[in-house]
Amino acid sequence: MSLALVCMSHSPLLDFAEPPPEVTEAVDAAFTQARDFVAAFDPTLVVSFAPDHYNGFFYDLMPPFCIGYEARGVGDYGTTEGPLDVPTAVAERLAQHVIDRDVDVAISRRMDIDHGAIQPLEILFGGIDTVPTIPVFVNGVARPFTRMRRIRQLGLAIGDFLAGLDERVLVIGSGGLSHDPPVPQWATASDQQRAMLLDGRHPTAAARDARQQRVIDTAREFAAGRAEIRDLNPEWDLALLDVLASGDLTAIDAMTPDQMASDAGNSAHEVRTWVAAYSALSAAGAYDVTSRFYRPIPELIAGFGVTTALPRTPALARG
């Protein structure tokens, strides 16, 4: 077994916004560095921790986390639509292992995933079916939220399973960091919005376009300083990146949903994917962050980060 990690922000606006050229160049350079890292590691299996944005998971049934036995991209924001190459038998064994470690995880034999899970696969591999991938949904948008300690436990249980595989496993965490895009909240949503939050599967092309355009318009207003959403919080983002790099993730247990939303926006809960991924890596022992990029990018409505990491033990890093 060998493990490696890439955690990265995603944004539906990557192909729709126009940050200053130097910002775009910096993001592209961070993506290139991550791609080179992945190519050198040459994974035989990917475990992807990602949220959803009411494209695959809805309030008719909203688990805190879910392992996909089969999965398909829904094609939002121009991302790839179609099936992932999910090794179903391995995913089934993974779910049983996690449950046996007292983490009650849901499963799906027909998981729909959106840009949050698809973008990293496209960026790192050039497609969504080039490497066998097990998707793990981590709720980062819909209250109520499980405690952060449970996210760590999920990651540790998955990492413990991966330690027993004869594979080179890349663990991906996709989400965050501080950001507050115009995602409806159930408590304040209109009747029409609640209908979408309850079950908005398979929208018409017009409905999807209208929803996406609202996000694009908000990003433009936010970059101009006019949108009524929470500001990005670089201080919060950098402090979290420091904790993740430290290897001692227990400090994250003290984070609460209300404080996270207040400090870093309603979608800052997506950092749960990073916590799960780093926790999975920590199951192999101490680790080192090998690269770190961060920049607050209003045009993407995101505190944008990309990190890579490897276990400190050389044998685990080499495979």
Rank of each mutant, 00 (worst) to 15 (best):
L3C: 05
V6K: 05
C7I: 14
C7H: 02
H10Q: 14
H10I: 07
F16E: 12
F16G: 00
A17N: 05
E18Q: 13
E22N: 14
T24S: 15
V27S: 01
A29H: 10
D36H: 07
F37N: 08
A39R: 15
P43L: 04
T44N: 00
D52Y: 08
Y54R: 03
N55L: 14
G56A: 06
F58A: 05
D60V: 01
L61H: 15
P63C: 12
P63F: 02
A71V: 09
R72I: 01
G75N: 09
T79Y: 13
T79V: 12
D85R: 12
D85Y: 07
D85A: 14
P87R: 00
A89S: 14
A91I: 10
A91L: 05
A91H: 02
L94C: 09
A95G: 09
A95M: 08
V98F: 03
V98T: 08
V98N: 05
D102F: 08
D104I: 09
V105E: 00
M111S: 04
D114Q: 08
H115D: 04
H115V: 02
L124E: 03
G126Q: 06
I134E: 02
I134S: 07
I134W: 01
V138R: 00
N139P: 02
A142K: 03
A142P: 02
R143P: 15
P144N: 07
R150K: 12
I151Y: 06
L154C: 03
G155R: 06
A157M: 05
D160N: 15
G164R: 12
L165H: 10
E167F: 00
R168F: 02
I172V: 15
I172A: 04
I172C: 05
S174C: 10
G175N: 10
S178R: 11
P181V: 11
P181F: 10
W186K: 09
S190R: 09
S190P: 09
D191S: 12
R194N: 03
M196T: 09
L197W: 11
R201W: 01
R201D: 00
H202P: 00
T204R: 00
R208D: 14
R208G: 06
A210I: 03
F222R: 01
A227T: 14
I229E: 04
E235Y: 08
W236D: 07
L238Q: 14
A239K: 15
A239Q: 15
L240H: 10
L240P: 02
V243P: 04
V243F: 01
D248V: 01
D253V: 05
D253I: 10
A254R: 14
D258R: 08
Q259F: 03
N266D: 12
N266H: 14
S267E: 15
H269R: 11
V271D: 08
R272D: 10
A276M: 06
A277M: 02
A277R: 01
Y278L: 15
Y278G: 00
Y278Q: 07
A280D: 11
G285Y: 06
A286I: 00
T290M: 01
P296R: 10
L310E: 10
T313C: 11
T313N: 13
A315W: 06
A315C: 04
L316Y: 15
L316G: 02
A317G: 07
A317W: 04
G319L: 09
G319S: 14
